[in-house]
Design a protein around this nucleic acid. Structure first.
Lengths: 225, 225
DNA sequence: CCAAAAGTGTTGTGTTTACACCCATGT
DNA sequence: ACATGGGTGTAAACACAACACTTTTGG
């Protein structure tokens, strides 16, 4: 690549970082690892790393999702590219940040994996390496916005779910309570979910009807909440 | 940077590309240059280029805006990072794409500048180098979306403008006609512009009142069109 | 006085919000 | 029988879309 021989051009390093969200225990959680190398050794950080030779960033993210979260084929979207000079003490490093949404039922976190991936509530984040806090905040803003005009929520829920679960997911991410009558009315009027004959019971309470997304793939919607 | 010595890591090249929009002659236009080097020599392309050493992408875009469009301090926003392996025949090249909005009154295009920057209507784009058509389409989608929930339109207009000019800008970008009563009503109710005592005349017609944005800086709005 | 674009209100329709009670189940 | 959360409808406020005539200017 002769362009790289120019006196002026010097390639910055290129990494990817993944903000992996899931909703569990009535809380929005992010997957973080504990760095085993300098810089920021022993700090928590987003899972990520350098692109390997001729690897597009999308593939790098898929690799990380597999390694750190044990998942394939989850909703993944490019977020933003961060390249402040100050973000990495080693020098100019460009990171292409992605966010991914994983239903709690398919996450496979193993503490034997290198750097101990673990979920943290977004409400109680530890100190983070690099500019990773900023990246998470950016991702959260994007997620909130997308909840309101797309059907992405399907990618945070199991295939079959109840309206109260769905509503809880919205509430936890948006950080506010919603009226259940209005919620059900609006969501059902979109005709993107269908009721199943079954119901889901819980301890000591009335069982809720189960639903399924008619087409669990990304769609834009008129509007939402 | 020892990370770059790894057997596996090989830095892709990093470039920026700028989609510079302006509205002129009742049309949405993009600035394109004619490439003087391989690959895609003599094809039209977005202005852009490699990052120079330790230059953040934001600065690189500002440099390009200055060189090719003769402007400083215009609305600039990072768009997306494109890194398909196939996008550049020279090898893995990541481009961080930006879009910029320039009022026609401040654009300074000079045909003596290298690679002859020129405006093209987005309705009649020539064949473009690399994946630049895709980038322009992506930028156009973003611009349309942003018109509807932000005040960005201020960055395409001169400081003083009339309601019909404003409406025309919306119409040209959204590609549809709007009702002028509803438009004026809605826009004025946002309280983001203030009327000036002056009016702007045109040939053989009633002059229109001039307005100015109260705060010409990016804001989110409730909703729009 | 004529051509051309500026300016201005009302009404009907659909969407959003606010709000409270009964139901099904497990213990 | 009771505690817990599931399920459901209506009315008022608001936002949006449709629609036509009068005004101001230059020529």
């Amino acid at each position: 690549m002769n362009v790289q021989k120019s006196k002026l051009y010097w390639p910055p390093a290129v990494t990817v970082d993944a903000v992996i969200f899931t909703v569990q225990e009535d809380d929005l959680q992010v997957l973080l690892i504990e760095r085993s190398n300098e810089p920021f050794r022993n700090y928590c950080a987003l899972p990520g790393g350098f692109l390997i030779k001729n690897e597009p960033s999308r593939d790098a993210v898929a690799r990380i999702l597999k390694d750190k979260a044990g998942v394939n084929n989850v909703y993944t979207e490019q977020l933003y590219t961060f390249d402040d000079l100050a973000r990495d003490p080693r020098g100019h490093t460009v990171t292409i940040a992605y966010f991914a949404l994983v239903p709690p039922t398919s996450l496979k976190i193993s503490s034997s994996v290198r750097e101990h991936p673990q979920l943290y509530s977004v409400k109680r984040l530890p100190n983070l390496a690099f500019d990773h806090r900023k990246i998470i905040e950016y991702a959260l803003g994007r997620l909130r916005a997308k909840l309101e005009y797309t059907n992405v929520v399907y990618s945070l829920l199991p295939k079959e779910f109840t309206i109260p679960q769905l509503q809880k997911t919205y509430e936890v991410i948006l950080g506010k309570r919603l009226d259940k009558r209005n919620f059900a009315k609006k969501f059902l009027s979109l005709n993107i979910v269908k009721p199943l004959p079954k119901k889901l019971g819980g301890p000591r309470r009335r069982p809720a009807r189960l639903y399924r997304f008619i087409s669990p793939s990304p769609q834009e919607l008129k509007k939402f909440f």
